[in-house]
Design a protein around this nucleic acid. Structure first.
Ligand code: MN
Ligand code: MN
Ligand code: ZN
Ligand code: ZN
Lengths: 143, 143
DNA sequence: TAACTAATTTGTAATGATTATAATTTTATA
DNA sequence: TATAAAATTATAATCATTACAAATTAGTTA
């Protein structure tokens, strides 16, 4: 079935299954560009005009709380959302604004554990200028 | 002199020296608990009632742009600020809300460079329950 | 020093993301 | 099917941040 995958995700955490939550999960599975709550809301509203912004926020919160999705703070402006697969870091381009996955795991967790804090989330991000934006700049200089 | 240290920081980056900027730098140097813009504003307003919130935001922005201070996104709610010394990570306690320095450097920068993005900032943070909050919970169970 | 220009500060209003609230609808249970 | 609990919806409120224009301050030149 189309939604079986997401139904199981919710069942495993005994979260009540609703059409809205399933749609949001499917959206995040399909759109791996770390969308904002508002982007999710406006896109899903096209096929479900009665969808409420509050529902999107509520759903994202409960999914995040149960570690089904990941809420990431990079821009300082708004939260971005990501389906959790393996642990990874992020790169945000200050030029084009994109947030790109960086496929690395953080070797620092052990050190933090040694200090005595209990770690529940690990986040790493870099900021700078992405490869594509750098290449565009070079092209401009050559022309 | 009292402010010489901060005057030099600004001079080195050829940023215009103003009393407000010096006060903000001194505040961040003294308060290493990653305060919000609002906390800086209300505290400094006590000795300078005419201080404007906008000035605090503007100053923080220019200081951050010149890498004199660090703007960190952890809470998703607001930006926190930090005088930059050595590179370090952060730990945010979900219980008490504190943001604690973790004295480690990130060994992942090289890998990100290899991908071709130009890195200007490196951020790492963990979330969980801090040592102190964990100990309080144990005390409660024992009593 | 005085006059002039540019940059900064200030106060206020606007924006935008997120949260609170209460009514309505949907889901789970008996 | 009837009932209770949970989720959704629409709207209003909150809170951090930004925009804007007037007033002040700093830097420069004569
Ligand atoms: Mn990601
Ligand atoms: Mn710090
Ligand atoms: Zn880019
Ligand atoms: Zn704590």
């Amino acid at each position: 079935m189309m939604f079986e995958k997401y139904v199981n995700l919710l069942k495993n955490k005994s979260i009540q299954i609703t059409p809205q939550r399933l749609e949001i999960l499917r959206y995040l599975d399909k759109h791996r560009n770390h969308p904002t709550a508002y982007q999710i809301y406006t896109d899903l509203k096209k096929n479900n005009p009665s969808l409420s912004k509050t529902t999107v926020y509520n759903s994202l919160e409960i999914l995040n709380k149960h570690n089904i999705i990941n809420s990431i703070s990079i821009t300082g402006l708004e939260s971005r959302y990501d389906i959790i697969n393996e642990m990874h870091h992020h790169f945000m381009c200050k030029k084009c604004g994109r947030i790109i996955d960086i496929e690395i795991t953080c070797p620092n967790i052990k050190k933090t554990l040694e200090i005595g804090h209990k770690i529940e989330e690990v986040h790493g991000y870099f900021k700078g200028k992405c490869k594509e934006c750098l290449e565009k700049e070079i092209d401009k200089h050559e022309s």
